[in-house]
Design a protein around this nucleic acid. Sequence first.
DNA 1: GATTTCCTGAGTGGATCAATCAAGAAATTG
DNA 2: CAATTTCTTGATTGATCCACTCAGGAAATC
Lengths: 164, 164
Amino acid sequence: MKLSTKGRYAVMAMADLARFGGDRPVTLADIAARQEISLSYLEQLFARLRQGGLVTATRGPGGGYRLTRSPQETRVSDIILAVDEPIKTTRCDIASPKGCTGTQARCLTHDLWEELGHQIHVFLAGVSLADILEKRVLGRASVGAALPATGPVGTVSLGSSATS
Amino acid sequence: MKLSTKGRYAVMAMADLARFGGDRPVTLADIAARQEISLSYLEQLFARLRQGGLVTATRGPGGGYRLTRSPQETRVSDIILAVDEPIKTTRCDIASPKGCTGTQARCLTHDLWEELGHQIHVFLAGVSLADILEKRVLGRASVGAALPATGPVGTVSLGSSATS
DNA sequence: GATTTCCTGAGTGGATCAATCAAGAAATTG
DNA sequence: CAATTTCTTGATTGATCCACTCAGGAAATC
C-alpha cells in the first residue's frame, strides 16, 4: 500500500462525491471547484477510479460521476489502490522479497515493513466514505484488538504473515 | 510521519548497527557493504542520526558509530523522524490544518490523515531495534487494544485527537 | 606523517507528481 | 441538425525529491 498525495486527492474527491452526490451525478468541474483540484488532474484520477469500478460516469449535460456502491460500502483502501501504481519493487521491498530470507545480514527489516503495510491497509480498509463524512475516524483502533496485552512496549507476538 | 525509502534505509542501517555493534564501533564502510547502500549516502543519513542523538561517532582508525542507547531503547519512529524532513505542508496536510475547520466542503478528509499518521507513529514507536533483530514484529497489534469491539467493521469511536 | 574514519557541501540523473494542453466521443438541448 | 455539455484519452511540462556521486576537509590513531 503506497501512500502519496495522489491517493489523498482521490479520497478527497470521492468524499466530495459521496457528500454532494444524491440522486443526480456530480460534475468533475464542481468537485474541482470545491476541493480546489485541477480539473484535468481530476480527470486522470477518475479515469482510474472508473476502471477500478468505484464510480460510474454519465456523459452529456446533466451527466457526471456517481458512486458505484454506497458510501458505507466504499472503502478508503480501495480508492488508494485504484489510483496508485502497484508497488514498485526496489530491492527487497514490501511486496517482493526477492532472495531475502530475512535472517541474512541485509534485509533485517523485511518483517517490519511488511507488518507496517499490513497495519496501514487494515486501518484504511476499515474506514468508509460514510465514516469520513460522519467524522467517525479519530481515535479509532487499527487491528488485533483481541490480542492480550503481554507487556509494556516490547510486546512479543508472532503471528500470521499477512501480505497487504 | 513521513514514510519514504530514505527512512527505510536508515532503519536498515541502524538494525545492522545494533546487530554487529558490540563493544567496538561499527564502520560505515562495513554497513555499506553488508546492506548494499552507498557509503556517501550512509554518511548523509548518519549525519542526521548523529544530530538526532541516536548514534555517537568516533573518528580515526578503530572508530565508527555506536548506538547512543541500547537496541531495546532505540525506537523505529525516532530513526525515521531523525532522517526525514519535517512534514511538508502542502495545502491542508496532516501537520498543519491551516484554515481547515474540517466541516467545510474542502478538507473533509483531514481527520482521516491525522488518524492514519497517528496510527503509523504509534506502531513504529512500539517497535525497537531489539524487536527487529529478534523478529518480534509480525502480527503485532497497533494501538487501542483495550477498546471494546462495538461493531463489525464500521466501528464508531470518537476519542483523543492526538497529533503525530 | 600516513592512514583511517568521520564530516560537510555541492551537484547530478532519474522518477514521480501535479498540472496543462489538445483533441475527441457520447449525450442532451434547442 | 447544431451547439453545448461532459466525459475520455494521450502527450507534454516544470518542479521537486530521491538516491547517489564527487570533492574536499577534520579529527584520531599508528
